[in-house]
Design a protein around this nucleic acid. Sequence first.
RNA 1: GGAGAGAUGGCAGAGCGGUCUAAUGCGGCGGUCUUGAAAACCGUUGACUCAAAAGGUCCGGGGGUUCGAAUCCCUCUCUCUCCGCCA
Length: 425
Amino acid sequence: MLQLQVLRQNPQAVKDRLCVKNFAEPQLVDTIITLDDERKKLQQEFDNNQAKVNSTSKEIGGLMAKGQKEEAEIKKQEVGILKSTLQPISEKLAVVEKQLHDELVKLPNLPSVQVPVGKTPADNVVVREGGIKPQLPAGSVPHWDLIKKYDIVDFETGAKITGSGFALFKGKGAKLQRALIQYFLDYNTAAGYTEYHPPFMVNEASAYGTGQLPDKEGQMYYMPGDKFYMIPTSEVPITNIYRDEILKEENLPVQMTAYSPCFRREAGSFGKDVRGLNRVHQFEKVEIVQIVHPDKSYDVLDEMVMHIENLLKSLELPYRILRLCGGDMGFASAITYDFEVYSAAQQRWLEVSSVTNFETFQSNRMKIRFKDDSGKSQLVHTLNGSSLALPRIIACLLENNQAEGQIRLPPVLHPWFGAEAIYMK
RNA sequence: GGAGAGAUGGCAGAGCGGUCUAAUGCGGCGGUCUUGAAAACCGUUGACUCAAAAGGUCCGGGGGUUCGAAUCCCUCUCUCUCCGCCA
């Protein structure tokens, strides 16, 4: 949620930034400011009357104590009249406040100045590429064939148990997944992140806090009996740890990492792009989240990009880093870098991580603040990134490392699979 | 699932209709004393809103009673204790 103060200070600048995100209704900014003016007027009127009610009520207390009942009765009548004027004002105020809030949450975050202008993924800017695209041997196949050949992921049985888009990992496939989760978590904690294992369902307040509600309601699985949402990413429970908290400045930055399964409905997609592990309803992911001083968030963003880049290097996968254009960024993002790995058998790039600086967009909703030197409360900046999402990493590891009757895993995974680099028989 | 108790400022904890602009303690901050520190003493110390002052709001959330609610009533949520069930 954007800060009203920012809109009021420079409405035109806000509208200009919204246009970079291809936001369709920049005039909403003016509507919001008008509503806020009205709110202020009503609030003042209400406060003035309330002050009179309060002071007169105190007088009544004094009169009653002295036994001056008749004077007290007169005052009671006065208060009665004042209160009857208070009622309609507070009703109007409630309506205006709700309208104001409802409109304000429709505004996406403002893109930072570094964000390239553009409408579609084609307008994203490639920042860096790394690794070497492998030359696959003749007869190489995509991962959806490999998983059958080696019997390590079974989609048919997954569909039998639950439904289409749910994978059943088996044998060395299940072990590879477990190994990657552990490797990623250890890599993150070694860099100073504290490991968490959160609940995999959240309540409405948490889903709202990180911006999943009301924007992405249909994307989440929902349990109406308990009003819980299955988490679409551990970002939701992890960032909400600090909801409604005021941190001490010396406790910043807060660095957290968590593994969780992620549940996404992703209704309506089909075809080659979503085949096999390319898109599933439940996938495993290790996430990193940071809560930082507003002056530091862009330095931290660069650090996080480096951190994830080095992790990809260690897996020996060809990768590239994209700076997303305004039109391709998420609702809550001020700037996002996407990481993609090259799937040699599918001959396409697959997104495996997304690193975002939300600036104050999440912290304003969640009221995550810190006390600065002068004792003032300020909103923190929040950032997160995947390190990493597993299915497409697995797809690429399988495809890019396939050889005659075997798949060679990179050395960092040898602790789980033995010294020999030949696995998946 | 059944029965009971409870939710108050960073923490602990009083408060049972009218100086509650919430006692007290701990913690934090400032000062006196000290070479420095500790101790002791003195002072100070919540959030939000309004450009600011005045004012207003906030004692788990929502609603009600009353001239007046932390305090009484209703309701929801959560926590704890005991019993039951259970990996």
